[in-house]
Amino acid sequence: MRPGKLLLTGAHRGAILVYVVFALFPLFWLLKVSVTPNDLLYSEGVRMWPSRTTFEHFDFVIAHSAFPTFFKNSLIVSGATAIVVTILASLSGYALSRFSFKAKYWIVALMLITQMFPLVMLVAPIFRMLSPLGLTNSLTGLVIVYSAFNVPFATFLMQSFFDGIPKDLEEAAMIDGATQFVAFRQIILPLTLPGIAATLGFVFTAAWSELLFALMLISGNDAATFPVGLLTFVSKFSVDFGQMMAAGVLALIPACLFFLLIQRYLVQGLTAGAVKG
């Protein structure tokens, strides 16, 4: 390698490294505070790692707080939302990608409009709608609200994945004897697995970290999700940083596991070899 090129490669790697450090530093800080004993939290100044570490915060959060309930609720809400949204979005995304129909333009416009309003504006009307139906203070209500908010974006996401799959494939399947739906299920869906994984992951994390509606629609600990639960560590006079961070670290685990699970679909280019390469 020529020295100029070497320098360029070095600079490139360096830039990536700086970015990664920048992005991961808050997570590191989360971890650091979660293992710092309370008495050292303010007394040691700014240090990269406390002189003594402890797991007492984790112990407290798991054994003596309502956190496991929050955790379970969040898992149910996020999982259900992700599945519901992905199913709806693959069907609607496929329709937008493959069919031309009269109201298509207006449906797309309408979906874009729903994305334009700040969510805060919608809290009161949604509360008014859900409360007579008995859907406030319930996980089902949250799943419905989250699904409604995520379907438009997920639809566009799925549409772009379907757009990337040549139309020839399902036409070939239809000539081979499949109906359009069978062609969709047996030929197109398997090829869209990366898109489905991306949509699942995107919606799951969005629902997992949603605070505003969870806070407004849920009162009491029974149906609270974990972002709401985190607020219980904030009392009138102090914030229990250690326990809060420990809960935060625990909350990262399912999201990490989830992405580990789907990452092989995210990186796989399944359509390779479909048409002339």
């Binding site: 040549p166 020839d168 036409e171 239809m174 030929i187 090829l191 399944l270 070899g273 048409v275």
Partner: peptide, 20 residues
């Protein structure tokens, strides 16, 4: 008639093989 009911076969320029 839908394509599937016409009992014809087609070879596409892109081949359109099912990659999976």
């Amino acid at each position: 008639l839908a394509p599937k009911d016409r009992d014809i076969a087609m070879v596409f320029q892109s081949y359109a093989l099912y990659p999976h």
